[in-house]
Nucleic acid binder design. Structure first.
Lengths: 306, 306
DNA sequence: TATTGCATTTTGTGATAACATACTGCAGTA
DNA sequence: TACTGCAGTATGTTATCACAAAATGCAATA
C-alpha cells in the first residue's frame, strides 16, 4: 500500500479518528460523519471502509453500515500501516535521493524525468511544482528545470539551522502564544518514552519525525501561521537531507532532556527563558552534526571546455 | 503585450542587460552570449531581437547579427514596456481579486474555475499550484479546492507584520551579513527620489514594489536564503492585500526617512541598532494602517442548517 | 575563428476522448 | 428519523495527437 491513493489515506485517517475519540467496540461509524470530518464525500469513505473490513477493523451489516470490530486500544499496532511518510509520492523521494546522490545532473528536462521515473506528465508536473515550492528546483525560462544548490550545499544546511533558531525563538514570544495542553502532554510522554526506549533501535525517519513534531507543536502554539509555515518548509527540506547525515545517537539523550526543559519553561510561563534556550538548543544541534553532504558537480548546460 | 510570452520577457531582460552594462550605440549583440545570460537557447533570443528591432532598439545586418541602435541612456524610457507586474499570469490576479471581493466562495472545483476564467486545465493547475504554494488555497483530498482564510482574515494580516518584523530584524544579525554596496546605493537613490517626488502621483503598485524591494534588498545581504525566501513569500501575499488597504500617504514621507536611516545604520556597521529599528519600523507600519479587509462568508461545503 | 543561418530534433502545450474516481440526491430500509 | 444503497452526474486523470516553441549541430559567412 505504498501508493498514496485516497482510499489508503482515508483508512489511516479513520483509524486516527477512532483512536482520538477512543471509540468502543461495536460503535456505529456513519459514512457521512466520517466524510465530513475528512472533507470528502461518502464514496471514498466507503471505499476505505471496505479496505478496513479486509483488515478486520470494521464489520459490515447490510443496510446498516459499518461498525467498529475492535476497540481503540487494539488498533494501536496498526498505526504504521499506511502512515509512515504519509501522503507523499514515492517518485518524489526517488528524485530527491537521486539528486542528493548525484545521479541527477543540475539541469534536466521534463521528458527525461518522465522516462526515468515512468511518470505521466501530470504527476511529474505536480511533483516538480512541489519541489519548486520547496525551493530546490527552478523552472528555466525555456525548456527544462534546474536544481538549485539548496539541497546539496553545506552552507545552506547551516543557514537552515540559523533560520530555525530565529523563527522558533521568536515564535514563543508572539503575543498570541497559548500553550496547547493536550499537545504538550502528548509531546512530553513521547520524549519520556524516547528517554527510556532503546535509542539505537529507532529508525532515523522516526527520530526525525518525533523531533520535528515537537518543534512544530511549540511553534503552532504561537497562533501565527506564518511562523509555522516557515518552519514546516525548512523541515521538509531537512527531512530529505537528514537521511544522509550521520546521526549522533549519543546526543539524543541530551536532546530529549533539552526538549523536556523547553516544555517546562513554557508551561511555567517563562517564555523569555524558553526563547533563549530554544535558540541554544537548535544552534547546538547544528554544530555537533557533521553532514555528509558534499557539493555536487552540477553539470553545466552547455558543453564544458575540456 | 500583457501576456507573459517568453519573447517579451527576454526582450525586457535584454534591455536590462544593455542598461546594466552601459553598452554603447553600435555594440554587437551576439545571440549566444545573450542566450547564456538568460539561460535559454538562441532561438527565443532571436525572436526577442526581432521584437526589439520593430521598436528601433536594435539594428539588423545580414549574416552579422544584431547591433545596438541607441545607447543605454536612451533606453531608460522603455523600462516600463513589458515589465510592470512581470511574468505573472493575468488570471492569477483575477482570481485573487475575486476571492478578496467575495465573488469566489471558499470551496471551488477546477472545472468551475476553468469555465469562469476560460483557462485550459494546464494553465489553471499551474496557477492553483502557485496559489497553494503561497498558502491561500488548499487542495481538498477528494475533488476541488478550498481557499484558506490567510488572505481574508484580519488576524492573518497582522500576523504577517509580526513575522516580517521577526525575520527581518534577525536577518541583519546573520553572521554572513554583507552589505551589497551597489544595491544599497540604488535603494538610497530611489528613496531620495521618492522623498522629492509627488507622492500622490505614484501608483499603489509602484509604491508597494519600491517598499518591498528595499526590505528584500536588505534581507538578501544576510546571505541566508531562508530568510529571503520567507520574506518573499509574505510579500507575495501582502501584494494582493495591500491593494485593498487605504494607503496613508501622509506616512510615506516618514517611511522613506526611516528607510534611509536603516540604510545608514547598516552602512555604519551598527547592525544591532539597525535590527531594533527595523522591528520598530515594521511594527509601526502595521498599527497605523487600517486594512479594509473583512472576513468573508466562507460558504460551507454541505448545506447549512437554516 | 567566432558568429550567423538554417535544417533537424527535441520538448512542451492545448485539445480531445476514454476511463476511473468522487459527489449528490432520493428512494428504500432499519 | 437517520442512515444506507444506488443511480446519475460531475470531476479529475491518463493517454494520445497535432502543433508551436525551443534546442542543437553544422555549413556558410564575415
Amino acid at each position: 500500500m505504498a501508493r498514496s491513493s485516497l482510499t489508503a489515506q482515508l483508512a489511516a485517517q479513520i483509524l486516527d479518528h477512532i483512536r482520538a475519540n477512543d471509540l468502543p467496540r461495536g460503535q456505529h461509524l456513519p459514512s457521512q460523519a466520517l466524510a465530513d470530518a475528512c472533507r470528502v464525500s461518502r464514496a471514498p469513505i466507503n471505499s476505505a471502509f471496505k479496505f478496513l473490513r479486509n483488515l478486520g477493523v470494521v464489520r459490515f451489516e447490510s443496510n446498516r453500515g459499518y461498525f467498529l470490530a475492535a476497540d481503540a486500544n487494539e488498533l494501536a499496532a496498526l498505526k504504521l500501516l499506511a502512515n509512515e511518510e504519509g501522503d507523499e509520492d514515492d517518485a518524489y523521494f526517488e528524485i530527491a535521493e537521486d539528486r542528493l546522490s548525484g545521479k541527477l545532473p543540475a539541469q534536466v528536462t521534463e521528458s527525461e524525468l518522465m522516462r526515468l521515473y515512468r511518470l505521466p506528465r501530470s504527476r511529474l508536473v505536480r511533483i516538480l511544482s512541489k519541489i519548486a515550492q520547496e525551493g530546490w528546483i527552478e523552472r528555466l525560462p525555456g525548456h527544462g528545470w534546474e536544481f538549485r544548490p539548496t539541497l546539496t550545499d553545506r552552507k545552506s544546511y547551516e543557514a537552515g539551522y540559523r533560520f530555525r533558531a530565529s523563527i522558533e525563538s521568536a515564535a514563543v514570544l508572539e503575543p498570541g502564544f497559548r500553550i496547547d495542553r493536550d499537545a504538550f502532554r502528548a509531546a512530553r510522554e513521547q520524549q519520556q518514552a524516547l528517554l527510556e526506549a532503546d535509542l539505537k533501535k529507532l529508525s532515523r525517519a522516526r527520530l526525525f519525525r518525533i523531533n520535528t513534531e515537537l518543534h512544530e507543536t511549540i511553534v503552532a502554539c504561537s497562533g501565527n501561521e506564518f511562523f509555522l509555515d516557515a518552519l514546516k518548509r525548512v523541515n521538509r527540506l531537512r527531512r530529505l537531507i537528514e537521511y544522509r547525515v550521520t546521526v549522533d545517537r549519543s546526543r539524543l539523550n541530551r536532546q530529549c532532556r533539552e526538549h523536556l526543559k523547553i516544555l517546562d519553561l513554557l508551561e511555567a510561563g517563562n517564555v523569555t527563558a524558553a526563547s533563549a534556550f530554544l535558540r541554544e538548543h537548535i544552534e547546538g544541534a547544528n554544530t555537533l552534526k557533521s553532514p555528509g553532504v558534499e557539493p555536487l558537480p552540477g553539470a553545466r548546460r552547455k558543453k564544458n571546455p575540456a
